[in-house]
Amino acid sequence: MEKQMVISVMSKDRPGIIADVTGVIYELNGNLADLKQSVLCGYFTMILMVSFGDDITAGEIAEKISSVESETRLEVVVKDFVGTLDSGSVIGSNIYVITAQGANKNGLVARMGRLCFAYGINILDFDTAVSDGLYSMILHVDLAGVASLDDIYMAVEDFGREVELNVVMQHIDIFKATSDISL
């Protein structure tokens, strides 16, 4: 009998973190199903979905990974997975991309988060960047739970005016079409 675990790892970034963590998982006979990793301002973070035999506990896995010897400390959280696994694909008829660009100011992400929550928009991915003094937010959102697409378009437009950012919502297929070779 196998069980699914969600593992979260954070650390000051250095070469070899993925090798260390996945090495421990391999030693514990874990089967890695999915992984997302990112580095922000020199800090490493990673979330993994792994299946293990039912003879090991979340606490044992966390302890094994945390005890890896290195110059940085790995902060690890391990949880039993609750729910059903899907493909994790963001491609679907209800996935849209919201972009917001303009001058940076405090509270923009919080306001965007509130907007999405207010309209039942589920954020799948959220990226921000500053380039040449221009602040950008890029969100992949799932609109499966929204009642009216028109309302969302209007809300996004109003939001852009309020926060003085150029905010645009566009279906993800458009970006696939203009950037991918196959359609």
Partner: peptide, 16 residues
């Protein structure tokens, strides 16, 4: 990063 650049380039094309 490359995906973000592509997204913003497409937004330029459609909106502006």
């Amino acid at each position: 990063m490359s995906a973000s650049r592509n997204i913003l380039a497409t937004i330029d094309m459609i909106q502006k």
